[in-house]
Design a protein around this nucleic acid. Structure first.
Lengths: 161, 161
DNA sequence: TTGATTTATTTGCACAATACAACTAAAACG
DNA sequence: CGTTTTAGTTGTATTGTGCAAATAAATCAA
């Protein structure tokens, strides 16, 4: 009985999450690509927002192969939004960081994305908004936990550092 | 004061949704691509689960250009998972439907995806599970409402039928 | 009815995303 | 010092994507 209910919840959750994914991906495409950048490029820039990262850390953070990473960074570098810098200690490691213009562009885009979240939140009753955030936080933790115990990243040798 | 709080919620929501998107996209890549199919192809099959759709309806449902649709359907057809059929009334319209083997494959994949949602749900306290579903439903409605009043689909001439 | 317009789809084209495998270079290990 | 591991790039192939042009069918207007 308890299990039956859980199966039904899981099925419903699959459907809703599927819809949400679709709609949010569309929003991202729509709001990011009218700037000078693609969705993948923007995702990479987001990861670099707080600190430079090595190629492998970037790839791990985005669950992508390191060769894919290398090429996306090529694009960003060509456009002047990111820079590569060799680690002076370990010369194998390349750190990627945002340039000033990269930071500026990212801020603009994130401002738009946050504005759209705000509009979405405004369609939810003020009383319920905090519970939405609470639930999303919980869900994010669960998904993270689930992935940790069950998945492997494409590039295999992930140090997850 | 009220506005300030809303801005903060929106910012936090942006960050959490971003993380969730990333992780769920990775899950989809991981769980779908070990079958005989890509993520985009699977998304198309999902749309066809309940009934055949015209090319344009498919493209609208997935927020993609109709030319992209045409090609993804090519792939599915080549693999024997989908079929095209001309509408006998209006000969411009092509209906796409799943073949038997397409339905079978989709069931298998969805079973896996639902199983992973179940594992994710199990990491959430039983008491909280219903509220997770409730909140996701609300959020989905809000995002749908937001897109309705603010966005346009790539193919432009959307009849949204 | 016929010519113009709209609508549904496909194709041509160009480029981005992606992974795997092969390669290079540097570090670590014994 | 030679072997192995690690970080990154490049070659190759496939898919995804959108815009524009082409095609074909339906609709609309005189």
């Amino acid at each position: 009985m308890e299990n039956k209910a859980l199966d039904e919840l899981a099925t419903e959750m699959y459907e809703i999450v599927h819809e949400l994914l679709k709609k949010y991906q569309f929003r991202d495409r729509n709001q990011i690509c009218c700037h000078d950048i693609t969705v993948s490029q923007c995702y990479v820039m987001s990861e670099l927002k707080t600190a430079p990262l090595s190629m492998r850390s970037l790839a791990n953070a985005l669950f992508l192969d390191i060769s894919t990473m290398s090429r996306v960074v090529d694009q960003l570098q060509k456009k002047g939004y990111a820079e590569r810098e060799q680690d002076p200690g370990d010369k194998r490691i390349i750190y990627v960081s945002l340039t000033e213009s990269g930071k500026k562009l990212l801020s603009e885009i994130e401002e738009n994305l946050i504005a759209s979240e705000k509009e979405i939140l405004q369609q939810i009753s003020p009383a319920a908004r905090h519970s939405v955030l609470f639930v999303l936080r919980e869900l994010e933790k669960s998904v993270a936990g689930w992935q940790h115990h069950c998945c492997v990243v494409p590039g295999k040798n992930q140090s997850i550092s």
